[in-house]
């Protein structure tokens, strides 16, 4: 196991805004690392430092033992655009070829196209692709150069469930054949499906850096929504971390264990209606967690 990338006391400010605040971490070869945090937490800033797009305000960023802003260092790096950014008039095959020319030993076009389900689309202009197809091409581009380290920024945002699964499988296969992958997401589900090590960042700081299970315990929250005449009793239910009154008169409970909470709710005999349970988005979980003083610094 070798260290592919290292951030050493890195701070990055944009004017008055501190996007990253004294962050230190290492990325070793092998596992898929999930970079988890709400929008604006500093995920993209961290990736852009590793990509050499920006320089840190303080501290050092190392990539393969060199500087990421040196283009020769980036030969071992695979990136993918955050938005679907492909030049609309170029054909899929041309985009793959174009990116390939930057690397000494690229994956043959047919092979990479097959891996990401693009074989039928090679002659298509990228402007004619669907959202999911564009995503697959974008992610494929990150793997074209046989990179040692791949940075995927929100790779499946806006995709339907099937498309998301297909892409995850391809990423896992690439990881198995040797590419270390860092994937950012604000979807807990995505991180759960891919990552073994999870780094949680919020407000520019590392809040947690642990195995998937350990982190899930900390941020995996469910939201239970219901309407009741006795809202005060809700706070006392087991598992409930906090409650919130909604505009329509209903209440939302944030809970670590929705099963336990709902069972207790039913047994307690409290009158309620319109019960609904769904997973809390990471952003919602964070808002709840960080609102509590003892959890401020996980």
């Amino acid at each position: 196991m070798t260290t592919l990338a290292r951030l050493d006391h890195v701070t990055r400010r944009f004017g008055d805004v501190t996007a990253l605040d004294d962050v230190s971490l290492e990325i070793d070869s092998g596992r898929i690392v999930g970079l988890l945090g709400p929008n604006g937490a500093g995920k993209t800033t961290m990736l852009s430092l590793l990509q050499g797009l920006r320089r840190p305000t303080a501290g050092t960023v190392e990539l393969f033992g060199g500087s990421p802003s040196d283009h020769r260092t980036r030969v071992g790096l695979g990136s993918t655009p955050q938005e679907t950014a492909l030049p609309p008039t170029l054909r899929v095959g041309e985009v793959i070829d174009f990116v390939s020319t930057h690397f000494p030993n690229p994956v043959p076009r047919a092979e990479i196209a097959d891996e990401f389900g693009l074989t039928e689309l090679l002659k298509r202009q990228t402007g004619a692709l669907s959202g999911g197809q564009k995503r697959r091409l974008s992610v494929a581009l990150a793997f074209v150069g046989r990179p040692k380290l791949v940075l995927l920024d929100e790779p499946t945002t806006g995709l339907d469930v099937d498309a998301r699964r297909t892409l995850w499988e391809a990423v896992r296969r690439q990881n198995a054949v040797g590419a270390t992958v860092v994937v950012t997401s604000h979807y807990l589900e995505e991180i759960e499906a891919l990552a073994e090590r999870v780094i949680v960042i919020g407000r520019g700081r590392v809040l947690a850096d642990d195995t998937l299970d350990a982190v899930l315990d900390q941020v995996g929250m469910r939201m239970v929504r219901l309407t009741t005449d006795a809202p005060d009793a809700l706070t006392g239910l087991p598992g409930v971390v906090s409650t919130r009154a909604e505009d329509d008169g209903s209440h939302t409970l944030f809970t670590r264990d929705a099963d336990e909470t709902v069972t207790a709710l039913v047994t307690s005999g409290l009158p309620f209606s319109g019960l609904g349970v769904r997973g809390a988005s990471l952003e919602e979980a964070f808002l709840t967690l960080t609102a509590q003083p003892e959890l401020e610094m996980i």
Partner: peptide, 15 residues
């Protein structure tokens, strides 16, 4: 105005 430009800047190519 297109996000393709920052992507190109992550490739191993000199400015």
């Amino acid at each position: 105005e297109k996000p393709w430009d920052p992507y190109l800047r992550t490739l191993p190519v000199a400015g």
